[in-house]
């Protein structure tokens, strides 16, 4: 038995490697990920972070549960490497003093005002397609499958992160997005439910305690 074990381990390693390769080709291969800033969340996501070059859907019944705070470390990182963060028709004023305090360079923040859903979609597609854009954030009231696919292709072309904030009911619809997360506000933070993760496992949950800073500290340790 003792002689067999190493070869079994080698097989397992080979299989794991093959599975990884398959996942990577499925994903288009070239695009990496950007760490979320929360080590526990990174561990749950297939590529170890927010998948660049794809669409991420955040589904939430309420605004103000911490949906942006979840993204901010990654957005800051993208902006600090010189890429622009584009906000397409945000339903609120992105508040400059708070964003700057949290480390987002304001000169990399671009706000686009639109007059219709059609214009918002067009602007999102243009922004995602541009390699100088790190992430584009959208709040589509309604979006059909065809348009989601267009955005997905644009994000793939630009290597950018497309974030769509959608209502909780959208969970029932199928979507071509690479990552779909259901957010639910809790008294002490946020519960995050992975509905779909392309190239990984769905159904995982993460409880983010917003008041504690353990996750943020461990992020600092990981980066150093």
């Amino acid at each position: 038995m003792a002689a067999v074990r190493p070869s079994v381990l080698a097989h397992a390693a080979t299989l794991e490697r093959l599975a990884q390769l398959c996942r990577r080709t499925e994903d288009g291969g070239r695009q990496g990920a950007i760490v979320t800033g929360y080590r526990e969340l990174d561990a749950l996501l297939p590529r170890g972070g927010w998948p660049l070059g794809s669409i991420v859907e955040l589904l939430s019944a309420a605004t103000g549960v911490g949906e942006l705070s979840l993204l901010l470390p990654a957005l800051c990182h993208l902006a600090q490497t010189g890429r622009t963060i584009v906000w397409i028709a945000p339903p609120y004023v992105p508040y400059a003093p708070a964003l700057a305090l949290r480390g987002l360079p304001l000169e990399r923040v671009l706000i686009i005002h639109t007059r219709s859903t059609q214009e918002s979609l067009w602007a999102a597609e243009q922004a995602l397609r541009c390699p100088a854009v790190g992430a584009a954030l959208g709040w589509p009231a309604q979006i059909v499958d065809k348009n989601l696919r267009r955005l997905q292709l644009a994000a793939e072309a630009g290597g950018s992160l497309g974030i769509l904030h959608r209502p909780a009911e959208a969970a029932a619809e199928a979507s071509p997005a690479a990552l779909r997360l259901q957010l639910q506000g809790l008294a002490d933070g946020l519960r995050l439910h992975i509905l779909k993760a392309r190239g990984g496992r769905g159904g995982l949950q993460w409880h983010w305690r917003r008041s504690d800073v353990v996750a943020v500290h461990s992020f600092a340790g990981a980066g150093a």
Partner: peptide, 23 residues
Amino acid sequence: TASLAAAYNDAACSDAPARPCAL
């Protein structure tokens, strides 16, 4: 990364009054 994390903690830890990202 360190400055990023430090800045990110500011809202929680520093003396600056907390401000929301959405107004």
